[in-house]
Design a binder for these strands. Structure first.
Length: 306
DNA sequence: ATATTACCGGGCTACCACAC
DNA sequence: GTGTGGTAGCCCGGTAATAT
């Protein structure tokens, strides 16, 4: 069987990623003219224009967008074949690591993670992507390097490693009437709450715990993320349960908020990172996972009460 | 500014002739 | 039969010019 020139795949990956002939040429140490001719060969091989002129630049065709994930996957797998199983030169490593996490994790843990990555692998990019419904598929296709979540992946082949566990505390404006007397479950339930949910779900473990005591709370506001919700507290009587590490963000932002221990018992939340086994032996990915684990641990320690 | 094309040169390979 | 050297053709990259 006559195989096509596999170098075209590497060039196609660069072209689709950069979206320009000049950018892809720079990345592959070629002249723009040489890359333009490579694009011509790719067009002939694929039978599609791949990138078409739009003013000064180029835009991808639907076929190109459809191929992008597959091409990246194949190129990464091919690169792995030639890479030592244990070594990676972080100083020259050019790679974008996509991590899916919620805004609590990004806001509290993302900064230290990025700082460590920036110092060790200055040419790498960290790309946080919002949580989605097709995590396992994204991991499998290589669109996602890591997923950080408290829910287990649906696919049994996906690898999981615990990062840290956390518990919830309550947040309210510092002069909230809640602080005038002892914070009982009944008083906690008597104020309106913010519930954090991307899918608009108002009920959760807090409601279960209150119901067990014959109490019920009113969720007056549903927000997609903790950080945005925190900014609503100073102007309202709302209460916001947050993972206790989120207090780091509240303190840094110098928000006029006060934390309180929840008067109910909630299960401990365990956050874990998960990845597809295809990346298990990849030294760069292994470094990412290790860096994630260590930077999370350092942030977690900082957030613990003295 | 960026993409494409024309033209040129270097490297590689297939093919052939020749010597051993 | 095998190894070596010469040649032609192809592929690909560079520069420069042109088109968008």
């Amino acid at each position: 069987m006559q195989l096509p020139d596999m170098n075209l795949l590497v060039a196609l990956d660069a072209l689709l990623d950069e979206g320009s002939v000049v950018g892809a040429a720079r990345r592959m140490n070629l002249s723009p003219a040489a890359m333009s001719r490579t694009l011509t060969r790719i067009r002939e091989a694929v039978g599609d224009p791949i990138l078409v002129r739009a003013g000064r630049g180029l835009v991808p065709t639907p076929k190109a967008l459809q191929l992008q994930g597959q091409v990246r996957n194949v190129v990464e797998q091919a690169a792995l074949l030639f890479r030592s199983a244990d070594q990676v030169d972080l100083s020259t490593l050019r790679r974008r690591f996509s991590v899916r996490a919620n805004d609590f994790f990004i806001g509290v843990y993302g900064g230290r993670l990025f700082d460590t990555m920036e110092r060790m692998a200055p040419l790498c990019e960290l790309c946080f992507v919002p949580e989605g419904d097709t995590d396992d598929e994204a991991l499998r296709e290589g669109r996602l390097d890591l997923r950080v979540s408290n829910t287990m992946p649906a696919s049994p082949e996906v690898k999981v490693q615990n990062l840290f566990s956390t518990t919830f505390v309550g947040l309210a404006r510092e002069d909230h009437p809640l602080f005038d007397e002892e914070i009982t479950a009944a008083r906690f339930a008597s104020y309106s709450h913010i519930s954090i949910s991307r899918r608009g779900i108002a009920r959760g473990p807090i409601d279960t715990a209150l119901n067990a005591q014959g109490l019920e709370r009113r969720v007056a506001l549903i927000a997609p993320g903790f950080h945005g919700a925190m900014f609503m507290l100073p102007d309202s009587d709302l209460l916001l349960p947050v993972p206790k590490e989120a207090l780091l963000s509240a303190n840094r932002l110098k928000l006029p908020l006060r934390a309180f221990a929840l008067p109910i018992s909630l299960p401990t939340l365990v956050l874990a990172q998960s990845w597809h086994p295809r990346f298990d032996k990849d030294p760069a990915h292994r470094w990412l996972r290790e860096t994630m684990r260590e930077s999370c641990h350092a942030t977690w320690l900082e957030a613990q009460p003295a």
